[in-house]
């Protein structure tokens, strides 16, 4: 079985979709000859030509806005934002049009557009290259929000969202682009619309996604040494959310910790904590505890480790819910 990186999984997913459907076009900054700054579109232009792998001018609103026009025409654009922090210029097109077009046209002009965004910190980048944007988009009706954490999921989820009839914000955990997995492509097994139970356990449920999944896996391993069995759930889809898997686990463990990189105030982790409390308060032996970024601007590279949830902070939270 070949070993691929998460980045290669994404690249192969794009290739796979473009081969199967000539309506799929890829567009963004440097996606052509350069293959994207993270090489996610590597060699696609060579294979599919400049009309289907489009180097756009440097303008994010333009990328999403023209992507919308292409979708109205009948294409399926996959738009690349070069970095999380440079998605903001496209915010109006995403929230005012991409998210709303289906509804305001009563389904007559649906937009099947994917916006791919490398997100999150941990790569020692300069400012504006380490942001966690998910809350903006999970808060916006009409968008779906997806984030993979493994190479096989990267492939399967990207194929899935390109085929999806709705607009999807596809968040790529950039510090995990280079993690490896043995994968037979194309990946077809499994229902990846459901959350992934990464590790089963009976004591504490840890909900996480994207770049934090690895951190949480390591923490769970560590906790196991102390006899604490964590159930680790990788959400994959933030919207639609697989609440069933989450609640089944919480009912079993009675304790939940949410781990993300995003600043916690107004975060998606807040949504998870609220849902769990609303839906099954009586199963809980302790309040849901969130581990996330502080409510400060994402810090400079030399001190970003102090900001990103690490093993110790996750374990502290696990202790807190166990000893409540």
């Amino acid at each position: 079985m070949p070993t691929i990186t998460l980045a290669q999984g994404l690249n192969e997913a794009l290739r796979y979709c473009m081969q199967r459907d000539d309506r799929v076009v890829v567009m963004g900054e440097d996606v052509g000859k350069a293959g994207g700054v993270f090489r996610i579109t590597d060699k696609l232009q060579q294979e599919f030509g400049e009309q289907r792998v489009i180097d756009t001018p440097l303008a994010e609103s333009g990328i999403v806005g023209t992507g919308i026009g292409l979708a109205i025409y009948g294409f399926k654009p996959v738009c690349e934002m070069q970095f999380d922090g440079f998605t903001y210029p496209a915010f109006e097109q995403i929230t005012s049009h991409l998210a709303k077009y289906r509804s305001r046209t009563m389904g007559k002009l649906p937009l099947s557009v994917v916006v791919r965004i490398p997100y999150g910190g941990g790569i020692g980048a300069v400012e504006h290259h380490s942001e966690s944007l998910e809350a903006y988009f999970t808060h916006t009706a009409g968008l779906k929000v997806v984030t993979p954490s493994t190479p096989s999921d990267a492939f399967a989820l990207l194929v899935d969202v390109i085929e999806d009839p709705d607009p999807v914000i596809f968040l790529e955990p950039k510090r995990r682009y280079w993690i490896r997995e043995d994968v037979e492509l194309p990946v077809t097994n499994g229902d990846r619309r459901k959350a992934r139970i990464v590790r089963e356990g009976t004591d504490v449920t840890i909900l996480t996604y994207g770049p934090s999944v690895r951190t949480v896996e390591d923490a769970a391993e560590e906790a196991a040494k102390d006899g604490v069995a964590c159930e680790v759930i990788d959400l994959r889809w933030l919207n639609p959310l697989d609440l069933e898997t989450i609640m089944t686990s919480v009912k079993k463990t009675g304790r939940a910790v949410v781990v993300t990189e995003a600043p916690i105030t107004g975060s998606f982790s807040a949504e998870l904590a609220a849902r769990i409390a609303e839906d099954d308060f009586l199963s809980l032996h302790a309040p849901v505890i969130r581990v996330g970024g502080y409510d400060i601007p994402y810090p400079p590279a030399k001190v970003e480790d102090l900001y990103l949830p690490d093993l110790d902070r996750v374990l502290d939270a696990v202790d807190a819910v166990l000893n409540y």
């Binding site: 009309q51 806005g65 026009g69 292409l70 979708a71 294409f75 005012s96």
Partner: peptide, 16 residues
């Protein structure tokens, strides 16, 4: 905002 949609749409027509 609609100016970009027109450009995208016309780009689609051109590709086709």
């Amino acid at each position: 905002t609609q100016t970009l949609h027109a450009v995208g749409f016309a780009t689609g027509a051109k590709i086709d």
